[in-house]
């Protein structure tokens, strides 16, 4: 009798949670709809999108340093069209993007934080243009790689995912850093960040399950090691689900760390087997991060509770060396896979 009551209660609470998440998803979609007028088209080439194209969505601000390489990298992977919201850049980002033949550009002067860290804008674009497409949702400092990425472009991957009945692929963010102090890792504007950011932490990642939405929560890497050793709970989340076969009813819940409806967060195998996953090479730690950190500390646009991250910004402003003798040099994807940072799953 008690067992039955217990099971009934569990069922009810699961139903309640599912309903709560459904409400939350619809709230996100509604917010996205309401923010539609805050983004103005600068150059809308979305008419050229063909039915099976792979699309890339993002919001950017002053990313001239990284964008040329970012676009080249993902173009060669097989992204057909980029849909980008520019949040008031002042460094020429807007003109550069407007001139790209495969970019559709929107502009907004609104607050990044108040737009759910840019997600409202991006979600609106996804509702309008993403439906039925395989979509990548990235930041300008993220470069997607996955098993065989140099020989098998994205359409091969997405066709295989379709075949396997998988609607999304996870990719952990891998923070890259230079060998010396951050300020020494100069690249020319538009250069390849990977030419200076050649190191990463190979095996200090903590994984736990977030039962609410069923997504993993991964923390670790150089930032956790250097800046959050006293308060590891606050260390940045590294789990991401950037590649999704989109439906206009989907919405990212929290950056691209988690997604609604929650079934999409199950990009991992729980029975001991291995699912496929990629990596997002994180090119955050170029020298400009030092000045940017001071600026972001003042802007308070990146965290819900920004004051808690003042120490972090201060540490970065002090031009630290993230490299340590145990750092691993960036090599081939096979090496990254052997380290267990990503997996080919059943893709052979």
């Amino acid at each position: 009798m008690a067992g039955l009551a217990h099971r009934l209660l569990a069922l009810l609470s699961a139903a309640g949670r599912a309903y709560g998440l459904r409400t939350r998803r619809r709230r996100h979609l509604w917010r996205a709809f309401r923010s539609r007028r805050k983004v103005q088209a600068v150059k809308d080439r979305s008419g050229t999108i063909r039915p099976r194209d792979i699309l890339c969505f993002m919001a950017v601000r002053n990313e001239m340093l990284r964008l040329p390489h970012f676009l080249d990298h993902h173009r060669s992977l097989g992204v057909d069209h980029f849909l980008i919201v520019d949040n008031d850049s002042t460094d020429g980002t807007r003109d550069f993007l407007a001139a790209q033949p495969d970019v559709s550009l929107w502009h907004t002067p609104s607050s990044y934080k108040q737009a759910r860290f840019g997600l409202d804008w991006v979600t609106w674009l996804q509702i309008r243009h993403g439906h039925g497409h395989w979509t990548l949702t990235l930041d300008a400092d993220e470069l997607l790689i996955y098993p065989y990425w140099q020989t098998r472009p994205l359409p091969a991957l997405t066709a295989w995912l379709d075949d396997q009945g998988l609607a999304a692929m996870g990719a952990m963010m891998l923070d890259l850093y230079p060998e010396g102090p951050l300020s020494a890792a100069e690249i020319a504007s538009g250069g390849n960040p990977l030419s200076v950011l050649r190191w990463f932490d190979a095996g200090n990642y903590g994984v736990q399950l977030q039962p609410r939405m069923g997504n993993l929560w991964i923390q670790g890497g150089p930032r956790a090691r250097m800046f959050f050793a006293k308060d590891p709970r606050r260390a940045p989340s590294l789990n991401k689900i950037p590649l999704v076969r989109w439906n206009r009813r989907f919405a990212y819940a929290n950056s691209t760390h988690a997604l609604l409806p929650p079934r999409l967060n199950r990009v991992y195998a729980t029975d001991g087997s291995e699912q496929i996953s990629g990596l997002l090479l994180h090119t955050k730690f170029l020298p400009e991060i030092i000045a940017k950190s001071a600026e972001e500390k003042a802007r308070k646009e990146h965290f819900a509770n920004s004051a808690l991250y003042d120490d972090y910004y201060d540490s970065v402003t002090r031009d630290p060396v993230l490299w340590c003798p145990e750092s691993e040099a960036l090599g081939s994807w096979r090496r990254l896979e052997a380290l267990g940072l990503m997996s080919r799953g059943g893709w052979i």
């Binding site: 990642y205 001991g272 997996s343």
Partner: peptide, 13 residues
């Protein structure tokens, strides 16, 4: 079967 002892983004038994 996966790689025993590995916990990561696509294997969390």
């Amino acid at each position: 079967k996966g790689r025993p002892g590995l916990y990561m983004h696509s294997r969390f038994p």
